[in-house]
Amino acid sequence: MNKHSILILLVLVLLIQSCGGGDEKTTPQENVDKGVGPIKTVFVGNIDASMVANGSKIFQAKCTACHKVDEKYIGPKLRGVTQRRSPEWIMNMIMNPEQMIKENEAAKKLFAEFMTPMANQNIPQDEARALLEYLRSLEN
């Protein structure tokens, strides 16, 4: 784990403590397929509107050549994906697709179905997080 992610974790821990639970919830730790890649734990709470706005912009620029929200295109339709997959899995799929479609059973299956490899669009972690938030916002 690099310094950066330790720092982020620390900040997250502090945040959880300071909020004292409230209406935020963490993802359940057991029996969840988190995929393979840099993301081990993601904290998701209420939908953050500014993150959604940012995520939507990135989605338009880097993902729409292959994904539609409500229709299968080059890749799967993405509304509903946050119900199928854990937040970590989704972020790992965005940031680390090569390894995901080689080593993660669920992603391997998708690749076998779609044949085109999910593209690595060189998305940094904060942008992947914003994309996750955007995908979450599609559920409501």
Partner: peptide, 8 residues
């Protein structure tokens, strides 16, 4: 080319 991946 909309790819953002190395070697594509």
């Amino acid at each position: 080319n909309l790819e953002q991946d190395w070697d594509i």
